[in-house]
């Protein structure tokens, strides 16, 4: 069984673009975002429309930054958290670019990166955009309660990130930020049924993928400057470190989590940290990509994690399965 695909140093991420919501714009990564929204409805008639608009503007912004027209791009791989992924589907209605819609909850961006890289590596496509979006208000409403309901958040809850981000993948031989391998995740279910405890749901999936990645590539955890998971939050990351120790992995200083990086936990009242399809995406496209292109980081293992629940499955008493995809991104 092949879980890891290798891309011999020629699939490059040549440009990224990011749009962050107002709360994200007050977070620790504020100076890295391309654009920060002033409010989360941006003049649209609903938050869903705002999410669609955010997605569309993000892709347009990427095309501008890369000096490309829509015809130059072979395909967009993207998804979001809304039912029937309407965030991406409706944004793509405005564009003349072929589109493949994806859903792996918050791990969608990892899925998109791997699929995009496979397309570039196999020479079927020469320019691919990978993208995801999420919006606090639309996710709250779909998975939890109305925004104006006076309810308390549990200490384990996480804050869905509002934002959109995209990366442009192309073939390039010169030195640059390259996707060098990707490990496709398995759906892992450890029997957690608390929809607020996403960290405990996703940590085993992240561990499963990281262990497979390291054994497939013959590397150990110290090979990477940074191993960064998607949105486990503070509690989930600690849990992953404990679980990893049992497997003989030491996720210490070179480990972090996008859900931790994106918000300031004390000041912003976000529970365990950020989550959502755009959490890992925004941290990667805004922050990690810049760190890689400046040379501060050279090799990272990017592991977006997703909890694959729906409101119906939760109500019917199902436990929550999770998935994580690992993407090795290196400056080579």
């Amino acid at each position: 069984m092949v879980r890891t695909v290798f891309f011999d140093r020629d699939v490059a991420i040549t440009q990224t673009s990011s749009i962050a919501g107002p709360k994200e714009g007050e977070g620790p990564l504020k100076k890295y975002y391309d654009y920060i929204l002033k409010d989360d409805i941006i003049g649209q008639k609903s938050h869903e429309h705002a999410e669609i608009m955010m997605q569309l503007q993000c892709i347009k912004q990427l095309l501008n930054k890369a000096h490309l027209s829509q015809n130059d791009v072979d395909c967009v791989f993207g998804g979001d958290l809304l039912d029937e992924i309407i965030g991406c589907n409706f944004a793509m209605r405005e564009l003349e670019i072929p589109f493949i819609g994806l859903y792996n909850a918050c791990a969608t961006f990892g899925e998109a990166l791997i699929l995009g890289a496979i397309m570039i590596h196999s020479d079927y496509m020469s320019k691919v955009i990978t993208t995801t979006t999420s919006h606090y208000a639309t996710a709250e409403r779909q998975y939890r309660f109305p925004l104006e309901l006076g309810s308390q958040r549990t200490p384990l809850s996480q804050w869905t990130v509002t934002g959109a981000g995209c990366s442009l993948l192309t073939k390039k031989e010169e030195v640059g930020v390259k996707v060098t391998s990707g490990t496709i995740g398995k759906v892992v279910d450890y029997g957690v049924s608390d929809a607020n405890d996403m960290g405990a749901v996703m940590a085993p999936a992240a561990l499963n993928t990281i262990v497979s990645h390291l054994s497939d590539t013959g590397r150990d955890e110290t090979y990477y400057d940074l191993i960064v998971t998607g949105d486990l939050g503070h509690g989930g990351s600690r849990l992953l470190q404990i679980l990893a120790k049992k497997e003989g992995l030491n996720l210490g200083k070179n480990y972090s989590d996008c859900g931790i990086l994106i918000f300031n936990r004390e000041g912003q009242d976000v529970g365990q940290g950020g989550s959502g399809a755009c959490c890992s995406n925004l941290v990667f496209n805004a922050y990690l990509y810049k760190m890689l292109s400046q040379g501060t980081l050279k090799k990272i293992l990017f592991v977006p994690t997703g909890a694959l629940l729906s409101k119906v499955s939760s109500l019917q008493g199902e436990t929550i399965p999770a998935i994580a995809h690992a993407v090795a991104i290196e400056v080579v």
């Binding site: 398995k186 759906v187 892992v188 279910d189 450890y190 029997g191 085993p204 436990t319 399965p321």
Partner: peptide, 13 residues
């Protein structure tokens, strides 16, 4: 991949 009930209980504990 799914844990059986016993293992799942251990994990939850």
């Amino acid at each position: 991949m799914r844990l059986d009930k016993e293992q799942s209980k251990e994990y939850l504990a």
